[in-house]
């Protein structure tokens, strides 16, 4: 399957990719996006099967990207990987249609816990 990783930090995108591999999800195509607007464009052009997105990004935030996706009819599974894991943020994420929110810092076990059943 194809996984779109959206984060304005190149280093964090690398860490997410590394953690996916450590968690055993190492046989998937990875597409990177550097902000929410880039992610939204690549949801159309790349047709990913899953989006893993940061929340705070320039140009378009992760939640704005998710809202725009859902408004356009996209039902691609979407999860946040963000440094903001407060109950308030989790509620906002769920209300917007996110499947899960993984708070940074995370481990491969956190990834397994949230992604088993989502990634085939």
């Amino acid at each position: 399957m194809k996984i779109l990783i959206a984060d304005d930090s190149r280093v964090m995108r690398q860490i997410v990719i590394r953690t996916l591999r450590q968690a055993g999800y190492d046989d998937h195509d990875i597409v990177e996006a550097e902000d929410g607007a880039d992610a939204l464009a690549k949801v159309s052009s790349e047709q990913p099967d899953l989006v893993l997105s940061d929340w705070n990004m320039p140009n378009m935030t992760g939640i704005e990207c998710l809202q725009a996706m859902r408004a356009s009819g996209s039902v691609v599974p979407f999860g946040f990987v963000t440094s903001e894991g407060s109950p308030e943020m989790r509620e906002k994420a769920a209300d917007a249609g996110a499947l899960f929110l993984i708070a940074k810092p995370f481990t491969e076990d956190t990834f397994k816990e949230h992604l088993d059943g989502v990634i085939a």
């Binding site: 930090s9 894991g85 407060s86």
Partner: peptide
């Protein structure tokens, strides 16, 4: 800047979560 900033982002995001809200976090 990217890597060192991301450490501040992760530490700051978790400090923010421990403080009374609602709050906004910058880049």
């Amino acid at each position: 800047a990217d890597a060192f900033g991301e450490i501040a982002n992760v530490v700051g995001g978790n400090v923010k979560a421990a403080l009374p809200g609602p709050s906004a976090l910058s880049l």
